[in-house]
């Protein structure tokens, strides 16, 4: 994925973070969405290790050794932030207080199934908070390269890897497109600049409905 394509994907995902939302950004690509939020955005970022009101990452030399986010970055807090223990942190998650979570994916299926925590025999770090975020955030977005490094689709008809949660994903943001998971399957909503609908269909491992109307470009 080119840095330009990644940057546009991140900006597109950031555009779906509406004022007033409480949001958890997963480790990796999703965390980078922060840089694309407008200055002064009224958003509450939650971190699994017990923070609401996470602020920007601190520059080198200004870190607080006691203040990291779930990905280990030395973050700041916004005025009005709160600290709490891990049980309360996941009470926020499981009781539906998160309006949105953005997560990474190994595979995401046309029915909204998500696999992002284990590749048996190759990668098994443990689930961390991913299962609860995927299962209980009110809305789940996935940020992913449309195809893996070998060129194989990451968006598939059915996940082959062990699931994080079933039927949890609402929207997929990739370097090629924005796709929604609907009761009628995957629907193409928007195209990345310079990408044609037929390119997206060819790079998707599941049936993808292409609307007749002209698609927005991001």
């Amino acid at each position: 994925m080119s840095s330009n394509a990644r940057s546009r994907m991140l900006a597109r995902a950031a555009a779906d973070i509406a004022p007033g939302m409480c949001v958890n950004l997963g480790i990796g690509l999703p965390t980078q969405v922060v840089a694309h939020l407008p200055t002064g955005a009224q958003v509450c970022l939650h971190s699994e290790n017990g923070i609401s009101g996470v602020g920007p990452v601190r520059p080198a030399g200004q870190e607080d050794r006691n203040l990291i986010d779930a990905g280990g970055s030395y973050v700041s807090t916004l005025p009005g932030a709160a600290f709490f223990d891990s049980a309360l942190s996941f009470a926020i998650v499981r009781s539906g207080r998160l309006d949105l979570t953005l997560l990474g994916a190994f595979e995401v299926a046309a029915n909204g199934d998500l696999a992002n925590w284990i590749i048996p025999g190759r990668f098994s770090p443990g689930p961390g908070g991913a299962i609860e975020l995927a299962q209980r955030a009110r809305r789940v977005g996935v940020l992913t390269a449309h195809v893996d490094k070998a060129g194989n689709p990451k968006i598939v008809e059915r996940c082959t890897l062990p699931l994080t949660a079933a039927g949890c994903v609402n929207r997929i943001y990739s370097d090629m497109a924005v796709c929604d998971v609907t009761p009628d399957g995957l629907v193409l909503r928007e195209l990345a600049e310079g990408v044609r609908a037929e390119d997206v269909v060819a790079a998707t491992g599941a049936r993808l409905t292409v609307p007749d109307t002209e698609l927005p470009v991001f």
Binding site: E48, S86, F90, A91, G126, P127, E132
Partner: peptide, 15 residues
């Protein structure tokens, strides 16, 4: 021997 728990479930089992 590693037993994985979802993070908040681990917290809640301890709670």
């Amino acid at each position: 021997d590693v037993e994985f728990n979802a993070q908040g479930i681990l917290a809640e089992r301890i709670r």
